[in-house]
Nucleic acid binder design. Structure first.
Lengths: 330, 330
DNA sequence: TTGTATGCGTTATCAC
DNA sequence: GTGATAACGCATACAA
């Protein structure tokens, strides 16, 4: 495979000139430029970026760490990240952490080994202290899930208001006994959504009943299980708010299995507006996050960090939206 | 950030010795090794792989090109690729081509620029000639979709037999008028599945009716649309075979909207066994591909190619399975 | 067992 | 406008 010296030789110029042509430097005559271009074509030369990267000590690669590539929610976020990245000459390395701290660590080695210029965490697994440390040494942005107080920028939505709006919608439909399917993790989103749920009840003078919160793990099966627990209660809820669409869909499945109807007997609201939400029967009422924009803004932030244009960590919240569909209103 | 020279200085050895410790060379005394390790720790040193990669002219990175990260089918394949890759010291760059030839080209630059050691195509967009050329110059494996005759290895399933089995299942249930939802693309899988459908009919002496094949684009909406066309026929089918689960789910939606029941009025079979297939109501009968294994085998093949252990292109077919669920049998 | 010296392919600084 | 050359950080052949 040809290298820059062979190109130079063939074009009858120095390697410096070839490099200038490669990098669109203006100080090269039209005639030489064409000679070089010709040589490049004839040799089918592709610059070896390993050399360039070493020299410039940058790779124009960024790391995007997410819990799960197959999660349709993150798919849209990634699209936003990629679009902005490409527009700015960056490539994106998508990495599955499976929410496993060890896998996360392994991928961060890529950053530490200078194979990537920065990193976007979709859902950091490590603790605050570690994140702080990473943030001090490398360009980092958090997107969607985030850790507060680590001095690291993030872009997300106001999960408290979103949950509040979802539950208020149910209350507005006359529901008073509203179950919630949450998760036993420490995500900010989870805590905030639970808080929004409680506040909505409180503002409508509905007493909070701890037993109405059941827990899953974001999976379909766990949604089924949690809903069954709610349905088995003596005084069972007439509506369910789940913190993810997949769990909401699991809940609907459970309700149907009990020969009950959605929304007539029990209304269901999800969260995220994944594509499958509008494919289901009934179509799911849910909170739509600006997934694509979240990704775009995160990448823009990261670029600023990498250029050193941003010292202070930023906290950015984008707008969400309640999408009303068949699972709450016939 | 510390480099190898600083580590050497601090440990009171030469850079060569540090390099030896880094690469687990045996010819270094236990005592020096420990001194070096100590220095590495104290300086929080991480080797700059840009240097190593340039020197070794390899990156231990491989490219995985897929049409769509969010497609749950590919998600499992990717998992297989990643697991084998990591076990062998490789990292995987996941890339979304959106089935766009230009995006595919851009990502292949990464390969040509020596930033990756090899590539796995989940669904090549380029033509046979181009793929042949790539295959002659770089380690390449095709996984799932593939182009025959380009001299490039692939691993997939026998789509013909799979479709045959699916349609035979419907015929066995007494169906004689069976619609098909296919796609107007040139994927081998598509052609083979159509052929399998026809052969199954033929073997059961059911006359093939061209009008019973409708076309979608793998999307939910296109599945709805195609099914509506089938339902609008004078003599409408009593069963539908779709070449993707998502389109099958779209078909079920359309059938329900016509106030018909699945499977009582119309049975439906999908293809792929994505996770949603068993979440839907009714749960979907479908062909399950060994997604994870497909990924594993593809990566193993690629590694062999990269090590130069494999000159001849391989053609590997893995087993599939018909999963019978509610959408065909109550 | 360890050190010295060279080169991987490129960019960038300095001359001319 | 162009060329010579010194890095970038590392691995390795060879020498000691």
């Amino acid at each position: 495979m040809a290298n820059i010296r062979e190109v130079a030789k063939r074009a009858g110029v120095s390697v410096a000139t070839v490099s200038r042509v490669l990098n669109d430097s203006d100080s090269v005559s039209e005639e030489t430029r064409e000679r070089v271009l010709k040589a490049i074509k004839e040799l089918n030369y592709h610059p070896n970026l390993l050399g360039r990267n070493l020299r410039r000590s940058e790779t124009k690669m960024i790391l995007a760490l997410m819990p799960n590539v197959s999660n349709p929610f993150y798919a849209r976020v990634v699209k936003g990240i990629e679009d902005v990245a490409h527009k700015n000459g960056y490539n994106v390395m998508l990495c599955n952490t499976d929410s496993d701290i060890n896998r996360e660590k392994v991928y961060l080695e890529i950053l530490k080994n200078r194979l990537a210029d920065g990193v976007i965490f979709m859902a950091p697994v490590m603790g605050k202290e570690e994140l702080t440390l990473i943030g001090q040494n490398y360009p980092v942005v958090q997107c969607c899930e985030y850790i507060e107080g680590a001095g690291v920028s993030y872009v997300s939505i106001d999960n408290f208001s979103a949950a509040y709006k979802a539950v208020k919608h149910l209350i507005g439909l006359g529901h008073k006994r509203i179950g919630m399917i949450s998760c036993e993790n420490n995500f900010v989103s989870t805590k905030q959504r639970e808080a929004g749920y409680k506040k909505a009840l409180e503002d409508s003078r509905i007493e909070f009943d701890e037993k109405l919160i059941k827990y899953g793990d974001y999976s379909f099966k766990s949604g089924v299980r949690a809903a069954k627990q709610l349905l088995a209660m003596e005084e069972r809820p007439t509506a369910i708010f789940a913190i993810s669409d997949i769990m909401a869909i699991g809940a609907i499945r459970a309700i149907k299995e009990e020969r009950l109807k959605v929304p007539e007997d029990i209304a269901v609201v999800g969260f995220d507006d994944i594509s499958f939400a509008s494919m289901y029967d009934p179509m799911l009422t849910t909170i739509s996050q600006p997934k694509y924009d979240l990704g775009c803004v995160a990448m823009e932030l990261l670029i600023k960090h990498m250029c050193g244009k941003l010292e202070e960590p930023q906290r950015i919240f984008l707008e969400h939206e309640l999408i009303i569909r068949e699972s709450t209103v016939k």
